[in-house]
Design a binder for these strands. Structure first.
Lengths: 117, 117
DNA sequence: AGCGTTGTTGAATGATTGCTCAACTAATAC
DNA sequence: GTATTAGTTGAGCAATCATTCAACAACGCT
């Protein structure tokens, strides 16, 4: 969906808009940022991430924990993998997933902080 | 959409699942958390939030900055308002929006950190 | 080889979502 | 009062998304 290059407003504070616009980064980076947060924006995925914060787990473990099919869990893990939020290791038929780095925990914690303020 | 109370897996690590399950909070809280992050999961909204990080702005300013209609901006601001991410003050016909608290900036910063790692 | 189990993948589908449009409210100026 | 500008709101629509289903790949076992 294309954004239109017009606005139905008389700009009231030109200087403010100019100043703020200089402090913004590229539209592409905002879309990347939004894509990252979108992964935290689903109940199933935040449960998976919060669970992996406590222990590495295989797909079956996660599915049993959340009452989902392996397929549903695997789809979500793939999305999390592509964004470098989780990593995995294979051991025989079993694939163990864990958090990729500390950013995930930090972001989840900030979210909980806001909810419980 | 209801989750089904079954799983097509033989649970492999019962102790792990049990331990992790004790460390989880309620499903409702995960859904609230996801709803919060969902608001950061859209290019337009993260732009609005990042802009407000630099200065309070009225709806027209934001619309001009992003090349959107007042209506589109107002819809998004309403969602951000309902989640206590932004606050506003009225001055004559003009409504000025600003960030509600420091959590917003902290969450955005963690997101940028992850992207630029 | 064949079988069982874990996990992945693509298509289909129902639900959610962001923007547009039109109508509306709020406040000021005349 | 009317007119103008800022902002809000609800319906509608196109696009996105999470799950299900069915088929498939990977690995170990006999």
């Amino acid at each position: 969906m294309e954004k239109q290059p017009f606005c139905d407003c008389e700009v009231i504070h030109g200087e403010v808009v100019k100043k703020v616009s200089e402090g913004m980064t590229s539209k592409e980076e905002y879309i990347e940022l939004a894509s990252l947060f979108k992964l935290f924006g689903d109940g199933t995925r935040v449960q998976i991430l919060h669970a992996l914060e406590q222990s590495e787990m295989c797909v079956c473990d996660i599915a049993a924990l959340l009452g989902l099919t392996k397929s549903a869990v695997s789809h979500q893990l793939k999305a999390l993998r592509l964004a470098n939020l989780v990593k995995f290791r294979r051991e025989a038929q079993t694939v163990y997933y864990s958090l990729a780095d500390s950013h995930v925990k930090e972001i989840l914690d900030k979210g909980f902080e806001h909810l419980r303020e």
